[in-house]
Design a protein around this nucleic acid. Structure first.
Length: 282
DNA sequence: CGTGTCCATCGTCAACGGCG
DNA sequence: CGCCGTTGACGATGGACACG
């Protein structure tokens, strides 16, 4: 093995501020610390070492995840690389990256030449019609992005949530014979009793009850269905917002990384121009 | 201290797409 | 085609802050 790849969890060397990390530290509701990784490449033989700014995060419930296999690479001087998981939402900048030669070792995971974006998003550059159509259609859902990333873990969590939700909802039939009118219940013209249930900030649920022949209160099937739908949608909206936030954070992080790379490339171009002019005058 | 403004968060509705 | 998940839009609410 000619080269080594190691990650340290800092972003200082590249000078990129990490919006993810700062956001994580400021948001009290975020339980995990998100770290932008610097991948230090120790290059083979005489080549100088180079640092690669990565937005790949440690394995966690995230849109962006660490590639499971980190491989050694051969990196000619001046080349810029991105080490990426194949189906990542992180896309390399098309056309600006030079060829990255991967050492032909078995079990290596390769992403080269700015092709690390997902199959869906970049496989059909030669099909402008489809691209145009996709531009007009809805962008993929956050869940789809996560699935593309192999978010089995998240899918499992969702299943868990769903189970919890259903068990919660299954409590509803127990209300079918509530012996007393709940406090705050109002009777409507249709004979239904509505009960406003406040739920934290904003919004609130409304549950409707009816009375049977014995004067007992029960939740009509229609009401129960609505209750279930609202509950599910409430949970879905919460999850959707969480994913959206995470997605936006990742995009912001990516912007920071790409800006930094752009800066570095501009500097490199500048120095190469100077070098070229010097040699020309000699 | 009361009021106005801004911002974050929430619940709900409606539209859309995917799936059986 | 109906059901269900996803998500943008909207309005409600509460907290933080500035101002008089």
């Amino acid at each position: 093995m000619d080269g080594m790849v190691e990650e340290n969890g800092t972003s200082g060397a590249s000078g990129v501020t990490d919006p993810l990390a700062s956001a994580a530290s400021s948001a009290s509701t975020t339980p995990h610390v998100v770290v932008t990784s610097i991948v230090q490449l120790t290059l083979p033989t005489q080549a100088p070492s180079a640092q690669v700014q990565s937005v790949i995060q440690p394995n966690q419930q995230s849109v962006i995840q660490t590639a499971s296999n980190i491989q050694s690479v051969q990196l000619p001087k001046g080349n810029v690389i991105l080490v990426s998981k194949p189906s990542s939402v992180i896309h390399t900048t098309q056309g600006t990256l030079q060829t990255l030669q991967i050492k032909p070792e078995p079990n290596t995971l390769v992403s080269t030449q700015g092709q690390s974006c997902s199959d869906e998003s970049c496989s059909d550059d030669e099909n402008p019609k489809r691209n145009y159509r996709e531009m007009l259609t809805r962008r993929p859902s956050y869940r789809k992005i996560l699935n593309d990333l192999g978010g089995a873990e998240i899918a499992e969590n969702r299943m868990g949530n769903k189970a919890g939700l259903e068990s919660e909802v299954s409590l509803s039939p127990s209300l079918s014979f509530a012996p007393v009118i709940p406090a705050g219940a109002l009777q409507t013209e249709s004979g239904l009793h509505t009960l406003a249930v406040s739920g934290g900030t904003g919004g609130g649920a409304i549950v409707q009850y009816a009375t049977n022949q014995d004067g007992q209160f029960y939740v009509p099937d229609q009401t129960r269905k609505r209750e279930l739908r609202l509950l599910k949608n409430r949970e879905a909206a919460r999850e959707c917002r969480r994913k959206k936030k995470e997605y936006i954070k990742c995009l912001e992080n990516r912007v920071a990384v790409l800006e930094n790379q752009n800066k570095a490339l501009i500097e490199e171009l500048k120095s190469l121009k100077e070098l070229y002019c010097q040699q020309k005058t000699e």
